[in-house]
């Protein structure tokens, strides 16, 4: 059976810096795979390669067995990969609802006549879009902020909105880049709940996270990167006790 996503030894360098080196990963539907590692380990670069923002120098990315290496970000998105960003990238001057509506672009018909005439077909479609967008807002708990300007939302709510916006592209694979960063314990618990709800919808999730509680609670598998090199890969139990991982995170014990 072909996995939903498969990366075959993808590498990306910036000048002399090897940001990602020969990363292999297979992700099945309904699974949560976490990518962890110290700062600068190449986690976000890995995401940027997956979502088409960077083109990896070597290796290939397969989605359902189709090669999507080097595709444009919107083409990757069209094939069912959506992402959030570590440094939140909302459309700050648009309302919360509009942010979601933008993400539905690929599912909207753009035939010029109904669009210019605002025909009944177009209006029905537009209303359906709004309805669907409200469902996504309800799913992440932002219903009452639908008409607020997204740039004015509190930080934690902006993170939730980013997730809702990514879901609105109707992805099969969701890339979450540090969704729990900067959250208090209560918000973190809610975020864990939200992520497992997303998984229950049948999506595959790749998660970058520093928050070990989140990672250990919901991951099915963990991939550990250090200086762009995968140093460990396996179940949370296995990774937690891996001496190589402990060394990468905590440093080496000084031996005389």
């Amino acid at each position: 059976m072909t996995p939903l996503l498969e990366t075959r030894s993808i590498s990306k360098t910036f000048g002399g810096l090897k940001a990602v080196q020969k990363v292999d990963l297979r992700v099945e539907a309904n699974r949560v795979v976490s990518v962890i590692g110290p700062n600068g380990a190449g986690k976000t670069t890995f995401f940027n390669c997956l979502s088409g923002i960077y083109r990896p120098e070597s290796g290939s990315i397969l989605l359902d067995g189709h090669d999507i290496t080097g595709r444009q970000p919107h083409q990757v998105c069209r094939r069912g990969v959506a992402r959030t960003f570590q440094n939140i990238r909302l459309f700050p001057e648009m309302s919360v609802l509009e942010n979601i509506l933008v993400a539905q672009f690929q599912h909207r018909s753009l035939s010029p006549f109904p669009l210019l005439a605002h025909s009944k077909k177009f209006r029905t479609e537009e209303n359906a879009s709004c309805e669907e967008a409200r469902e996504f807002l309800e799913f992440v708990g932002l219903t009452k902020y639908a008409d607020a300007v997204s740039g004015s939302l509190a930080y934690g709510l902006q993170r939730r909105l980013e997730i809702a916006r990514a879901l609105a592209t109707r992805p099969r694979l969701l890339l979450l880049d540090e969704p729990a960063a900067g959250m208090n314990p209560q918000e973190t618990v809610e975020m864990i709940q939200l992520i497992s709800n997303i998984r229950n919808r049948g999506l595959a999730i790749i998660l970058i996270e520093h928050h070990m509680k989140v990672v250990m609670t919901i991951s099915d598998e963990i991939l550990v990167l250090d200086h762009g090199i995968p140093i460990a890969h396996g179940t949370p139990e296995k990774v937690r006790n891996d001496p190589v991982v402990i060394k990468a995170y905590l440093g080496e014990e000084i031996t005389e």
Binding site: P73, M94, H118
Partner: peptide, 30 residues
Amino acid sequence: LIQRLYHSPIGRAWIAIRENEVAAAAMGVP
């Protein structure tokens, strides 16, 4: 012509590009 486009997915895509080009691309906007 312009107002009709503005109040449509195309107009929203334009604003999204103005607001954040990378995010717009990642959300499927060509």
